[in-house]
Design a protein around this nucleic acid. Structure first.
Length: 443
RNA sequence: GUGCCCGUAGCUCAGCUGGUUAGAGCGUCGGAUUGUGAUUCCGAAGGUCGCGGGUUCGAGUCCCGUCGGGCACCCCA
């Protein structure tokens, strides 16, 4: 009869979520959904599993190694998606004729990467992506920045800065210097600027690409420009003299920043930072990262950019687009450090104490009356002593309790107790929902 | 994938150069108290010391492996 106990454990890099962490997660997801759909982005979903050939070779060797890949029961070579962009490319190639362009979608879903877990890095995590495809208009680039801006504003994370750059600006300079062939390695080195400093970046450039250090420093000089958009752009114009690529990029950045200013985006929230290069290879135009003023070390909590020909691997139709992604787990870590997280373990706002055993119907009736007023409430399942029941409410951070015993029932009355303030009032049952709403508004 | 650090109760940790039966605080559960929680008092449960092997008369302690966690690379949200 003695069955051996199976050790309860989760896989490395995979997590359980208890209510107190799941509730804020859902709040962030809800905020993202609200802002995305406010701008007309439509929800989509795609399968967790794809044919391996769909995913392989799309993010570089690194992501291939990180792929969870196996053979299914039908002997198919399959893999779990490691981001939402590649599946979206496949999705777009497959359905664009029914969708029409431009097409705007958002996709909030888990992705999987078999990489080594670290702080804020997991093997299963949620991405909150949104993209506009099928238009090369800068209007879409601008809208992308506005979505990020509005979302962060809604999430109440304090001040933040969206730092933008343009891939072709650096490529333009590289073109002038005759170094375009090394752009990938140079950009990768540049990306480390804040971490390892100017000297080390130049050193890495020289070592990995064979450029001379004067060229490296010139690249770095352009990349070091940051701050107020108008000033930075002026200086950049002085450096980009012959490259058409670079000039196009400057024009794009000028239009983007001037339009955002005209819309009324608070100055300081949008900055040019020519050192932002992004690790991913597929960006071709605007690129951006977002940092919190209070927690700059947290890294970018929302990033993205413009890419050409997203679905080129799956269709001959050219689909360029622009989009971004919200780093849910990083953002959550940030909110936690900033003390902006509710520790509530339930969404209940009212606990109805079950005090008299044979009055369950009356308690449930009251609960349903509250539900009809949009108030989350629950009846304690057992007729335990009142102290136990209030203790339960306290532990779950339920702010209010309703108590009625024989005395109250005889007079159609309820006691409404505010747990945080320790105050209590006696009410006619018809007045309870109104009083509850008032207490919740005050708390 | 490489290098370094760390695994003792649900959590945070103590446990001496290897030496009887591994402790504390917090939390949990029960009671004081079926008409009032977060404060107080009493009591209880909870551990194959991550797991496996080795050295030893004897291992939480030393060695190896493995799994898990953290940090730095790499990469990334």
């Amino acid at each position: 009869m003695n069955q051996p106990i199976i050790k309860p454990q989760t896989l490395r890099g995979f997590r359980d979520f208890l209510p107190e962490t799941m509730i804020p997660r859902l709040q962030i997801i809800e905020a993202a959904r609200e802002v995305y759909s406010r701008y007309g982005f439509s929800p989509i979903d795609t399968p967790a599993l794809e044919y391996s050939e769909i995913l392989l070779g799309k993010g570089g060797d690194e992501t291939d190694k990180q792929l969870f890949r196996f053979t299914d029961q039908g002997d198919r070579d399959v893999a779990m998606r490691f981001d939402l962009t590649i599946p979206f490319a496949r999705f777009a190639a497959q359905h664009i004729n029914q969708l029409g362009t431009p097409f705007k979608r958002y996709h909030i879903a888990p992705v999987w990467r078999g990489e080594r877990p670290a702080r804020g890095r997991f093997r299963e995590f949620i991405q909150c992506d949104f993209d506009t495809i099928g238009t090369e208009s800068l209007a879409a680039d601008i809208e992308t920045l506005l979505v990020v801006h509005d979302l962060l504003e809604k999430l109440d994370v304090g001040e933040f800065t969206i730092r933008i750059n343009h891939r072709q600006l650096l490529n333009g300079l590289l073109e002038q210097l005759g170094l375009l062939e090394h752009s990938k390695l140079l950009l990768r080195a540049l990306d480390k600027l804040p971490k390892i400093g100017a000297e080390a970046v130049v050193k890495e450039m020289v070592e990995t690409t064979g450029v001379d250090s004067a060229q490296g420093e010139q690249v770095l000089e352009l990349a070091s420009l940051q701050g107020d958009p108008a000033t930075v752009l002026d200086k950049a114009r002085g450096m980009i003299t012959t490259s058409e690529l670079g000039k196009t990029a400057l024009a794009a950045l000028t239009e983007i920043t001037e339009t955002c200013a005209a819309i009324g985006i608070k100055s300081g929230r949008l900055a040019l930072d020519l050192s932002i290069a992004r690790g991913l290879d597929y960006y071709t135009g605007l690129i951006f990262e977002t940092f919190l003023a209070d927690l700059p070390d947290m890294g970018s909590i929302s990033s993205g950019g413009r890419y050409d020909n997203l679905a080129g691997l799956y269709t001959k139709q050219k689909l360029s687009g622009v989009g971004g992604s919200l780093g849910l787990d990083r953002l959550l870590a940030a909110l936690e450090e900033l003390g902006r997280l509710d520790a509530a373990a339930t969404t209940s706002k009212v606990l109805i104490a079950r005090f008299v055993e044979n009055r369950l119907a009356d308690y449930q009736k009251m609960s349903r009356m509250l539900h009809q007023s949009g108030i989350a409430s629950e009846v304690f399942p057992e007729a335990k002593n009142l102290g136990k029941q209030l203790k339960y409410a306290d532990k779950k951070r339920i702010p209010l309790a309703l108590i009625a015993g024989d005395d109250e029932f005889a007079n159609d009355q309820w006691q409404l107790k505010n747990l945080a303030q320790g105050t209590q009032q006696t009410l006619k049952s018809a007045d309870v929902p109104g009083a509850v709403l008032k207490e919740l508004a005050g708390a």
